[in-house]
Structure formats: C-alpha cells, structure tokens
Design a protein around this nucleic acid. Structure first.
Lengths: 333, 333
DNA sequence: GTGAAAGCGCTAACAC
DNA sequence: GTGTTAGCGCTTTCAC
C-alpha cells in the first residue's frame, strides 16, 4: 500500500494536534479561521481522504446499504436497482448488490453478511421459497432496518414497499370489461408467489362482481416456453379467446411469440393487455401493447425514501404501495 | 447499537488474552487444541462475527470490489453484473455497484470513491465521453487494480476485457456473403464509441476484400426511434435492401418494430442478422433472429478471473477477448 | 503455547 | 481555541 495522507500526518506537518485537524476539517465552530484555512489548504494539497473504515470503527455508523435481489438480469429488478443506486449516491451511501438466485440458503447468507458488515440498512425481495424470516429478525435486533420490496413476505412485522397488485389487476380487468370482451384467457405466473395470488384473486373478483356473460379462463405459466404452449393450445381449440391478459412482461413476450407463430394479428384477431414494468416490452411491438404500468424505478425511489426514514429512527411498520397506471396502446379494442 | 460479541469479550469470559483468542479462531498452529476448542465453542455460541472494518483498518486489505457501469437497466450490463456478482460471492468479496449514467463527472466521482473506500479492485466500462484517465491512474498509483470491460479506453496502459468486436463483425459479414445477399443495410451505433468503430471497420473490410457485387449501405442510429426512421426511409425508396445487419440488440429491436409497421415479413422480404448479448432478444421473434453472440455473462466471468490475478500481483497489462459465436435462427436465408 | 503492547485512522469526552 | 486521552476491534511483533 502506498502512503496515504492521514490526520496524523497533517497534524505533524502543521505542528498542531490531531483533534484540531479533525475539527478544522469538519468546520467546527471552536476552531479559528486561520487554523481552518491552513488545515484545509494542506488537506486539499495532500489530497486527504478520510478512511471510511476508521470512521465506521470509531463512530459505529456505516454508509453502506445492502440490496438483496433474486436476479439482476431482469428488467424489473434492474430498474429498481437503477433508482436505488441513484438515491444512494445522492445521499452519500454506497450500495452492495447481493443476488440470491432464488436460493433460500444464499439469501440467508446474504442477510448474515449484511449483519456482519454492519450495513446501515437492507432492501430485500425474497425468493419464492422464503418462509423462515429468522435471519431478517436478527437484523432488526441489531437495529439494522429492513425494507422488503416487490416480493414481500406475508407478515406485519416488517416494512414493505410493493405495487398495489390488486389495484393493477382490477384496473386490467375493468379495462377489459369496458371493451365488452367475451372470452378472456388470463395468464398468471408461479402460484407460490404472493404477487400472483393477489393479482389472480383481484382479477377474478372483478369478473365475478360484474356477473358478466364473458368466459374467463385462467392459467399459470412459469417459463417462456410454457406461455407459448398454453396460448397455442387455446387457439388450436374451437372456442378461441378474443382477449389475452398477461400478468407480467415475461408472460407477455411469450404470448406474443406464440401469436407470431400462429400468425394471429393483434388486435384484429385477438386483443392483448398486460401488466408491465415501465412499458419497455409493450413498446417493442406494433401495434403497441396496452399495459398497466408498475414501475420498478418508482418503487425503488419509494423504497429508498422509506429506508432513510427508518435509518433516522422511524419505527412505523406498514405497507407502502405504488399505484398502477393504465397506458393505452392499440392492442385492445 | 446492540452489544456485539468481540474478541475482547470472549477473552474476558475465558480469562485468556485477546491475541490467543484471535489466533485460536484462525487455527494458528501455536495454540493448543484445548484452547482452540474452548474458544471456538464460545465463539459460535455467542455468534461471533469479526468486524470487517477493524480488519480492514489493521490489516489494510479490503474485500470489496467496485463496479462502475454506465447503466444498470441494460441487458448486457445486467448479465455482466450477474456474472461478477456470482464470482465475487464465491470468492468472499462484496460488490459495490456504481452507475455513471454516461456522465463523465459522475464517473470520476465513482473512481475517487473507490480510492477513498480502498476497494480491492475496480471494474469499469467508460462513458462515450471519457478521455481523461487521470482518476484511473491515481487508482493504479495506490495499487488498486483496474479492469476495463466492454467499453474500454484506447490505451495500452490498462488491462481490458472485451469482446472481439472485429471478429464478431467479420463473422456477421461473412455469414451474409455466404447467403449471396445483394443489398445490405448495416446499422451501427454511436460513432464515438470504440466498439462501433471496430465493428464498422471490420465489417466494411470484409465486403471490400471480397470485391463483391453487393451494395453495402451503412448508417448510424442512437435511439430506438432513429432505428425505426432509418429502416422506414430505406424501404420507402426504390432500391430496397434484402438484408439488414444490426450492430446490437438495441438496434435490432428498433429494426423489427419498423418491419412490423411496414408489414414486411422476415426472411421472405428481408433477411436479418444481428450481434446480440446472450441471444435473449433474438428469441422473442418468430422466426428467431440469426445472431452473433457476445455474452455479457462470459465477459463477466473473464473479467473476474483477470481481477483475481491482478489482486494477486500479476502486473501483465493486456487485452483479453471473448470470442463471438454464430447462432443460426431463421431470419437469414 | 500464551500474553503484553503498539498501532491501524479516526471520534469524542474532558481538560486547560 | 486547542490539546490530551481513551477507545473502536482487530493484527502483529516481540517477549517469556
């Protein structure tokens, strides 16, 4: 390691004490202007940079946030990370990314790591299999705030930042009903995930309430290939859907691939509506797909705001929601 | 802060010295088995976790890596990050993500931050406007290794990990020539970026060498909308291209949107070939797009490998390349 | 085989 | 206004 400039070094060069230097650098009112001048000048000249490890060690506060994410290469998480990174930077924090790969054990290790690292706070979106929240509770014990986002556990014990999944599904369902659609194929993701359940229930409820004469078929798909298969199957039958609802971008791109293969034109032969993150994928197609926007970016901003509150001692435990917005394309008529 | 268990605490409880505890925990040969036993038992019982800040402070080595990236929400960087995160975790490092947003000043601040933070190493993909590498040189002065990846500066002074851009472009060009295509529209990105230049030159060279009778038209586009506009323009003229080459996924999705609008069918009316990251976007279309694969994931693995070498004292400065691979779809016949 | 002591770079209470 | 001192939790040298 090359010699770095420290408080001690500056104090020796100026023949004053370390604490005076420390105070001067912090613009402490006790210190005379002259001394401050001298100290600051020398500090900038020597390119002084406080050692963050020493600060943490003696002050016991860290400026690092941990972000536990199932997967980085996913448009949703990616825009969430973008937002949190921006805010962290603006607020003097740095962000450690910890990917769980949807593995509970990896996740637990990440949480432990955060504790060990004494981070200032943790953002976490859990794996579909996360049930035991003990590791997270340990974090709370040592007063490290935890903000769950997107895939949050069903508990009232932690702060959560989510989309209003029900509202999004309701908005989608109502939009479909307005257009007087008769036969709707609605595709949802993995049944284990709370988001799926919320969206599914709310969606179904709308149809029930309206006692409509439409036919609603729901299905669950986990992969791109499965989505293609389900759509193909339904269009090979007699009673073809006139509308497809997709719970997510991931499902929608599979559906669109299937429609291309089947050579069905949108919206002439089938209408499409999806829930989408930031509307990136819907815009790839022509006509553009009508979607309900749920923005990872917005959620990230919200989550950060909550984090700052929590770090500053706000102990309110509640769920915060980002409201969905309908963005009209031309895929649903 | 809640009381954490420290070496001191353990030493007091066991009535032995701090250094003995420290050694025992490290399985130092000097310490008797009995003592080691006792210490380890108590340590696990008390859930002892060494304070990383104290370790860094006294040992002057950190286990944190910095990753400077222009943008997180980009499939390429995202898979790069995925790979680096995985390797970091496996090797006991943590990863700090620093997004530059393609702003030179933000980038410089990130580099300074890394220095201040005394990270163990820095990965960086520079902005299109980065010219002054002074900040990076400072990093080298304090012996923090820097690995440039993807968008690397044109310098022999730093280690670089890239795709073999020329090889990718050559492979694409040769594939087109083999199919006896007559009129090729080749779309490239921002002219300032070295990748663009490399790919453009190599691509053109192939066509020159073959002294073929084809017509090659090149164009540059910076945005989704621009790509759509350029394609539309060329197909509204008389002399319509029979093939479009796209330098990247970003360009390709714009081209495909334009073709959907123009109602041109692939590959019947126009053939498509693109360079793609991990082939995600090419698979969204039917028929699937033929592409030259450049994998951000592979590049990430490579970059990490080089980083470890550098951290371990390897001072070799050179460029490392990931070779491109042709993946046949059905969009080029 | 174990302990004492100095030091990493900084903060903060207390003294003058 | 400025200096002294102890301490954060750990590593490491030297002593016994």
């Amino acid at each position: 390691m090359v010699a770095t400039t420290t408080l001690k070094k500056i104090s020796e060069m100026l023949n004053i004490s370390i604490s005076t230097v420390s105070r001067a650098l912090k613009n402490h009112p006790d210190i005379s202007e002259r001394t401050k001048q001298k100290v600051n000048d020398l500090a900038t000249m020597l390119d002084y940079e406080p050692n963050p490890y020493a600060i943490q060690l003696s002050s016991k506060t860290s400026k690092v946030l941990g972000l536990i994410v199932p997967k980085v290469s996913d448009l949703f998480y990616t825009s969430f990370i973008d937002a949190v990174e921006e805010e962290s930077r603006k607020n003097g924090y740095s962000l450690i990314i910890l990917k769980s790969d949807n593995d509970v054990n990896v996740e637990i290790n990440h949480v432990r790591f955060c504790k060990k690292q004494r981070v200032a706070g943790v953002f976490a979106s859990v794996t579909p299999d996360t049930e035991n929240l003990e590791a997270f509770e340990r974090l709370k014990e040592v007063e490290i705030p935890v903000i769950f986002y997107d895939r949050v556990p069903t508990t009232e014990k932690f702060v959560r930042a989510c989309f209003d999944d029900k509202a999004a599904a309701i908005l989608a369902a109502e939009t479909i009903l307005e257009k007087k659609k008769k036969k709707i194929l609605a595709l949802f993701g993995d049944t284990h995930i709370s988001i799926t359940q919320q969206r599914l229930e709310a969606f179904k409820d709308v149809f029930k309430k309206h006692k409509s004469t439409n036919k609603l078929i729901t299905a669950h798909t986990r992969t791109f290939e499965e989505s293609i298969a389900v759509v193909t199957e339904h269009f090979n039958g007699d009673d073809k859907p006139d509308t497809i609802f997709c719970m997510s971008d991931e499902i929608m791109v599979g559906v669109m691939k299937a429609l291309q293969i089947l050579q069905l034109s949108v919206p002439k032969q089938v209408s499409i509506i999806t829930i989408s993150n930031d509307g990136f994928y819907p815009k790839l197609y022509h006509p553009e797909i009508t979607y309900i926007e749920t923005s990872g970016y917005k959620l990230g901003k919200l989550a950060f705001e909550i984090m700052i509150k929590a770090i500053n001692g706000d102990k309110t435990i509640q769920e915060y929601d980002v409201d969905p917005v309908l963005v009209e394309g031309s895929s649903l008529v």
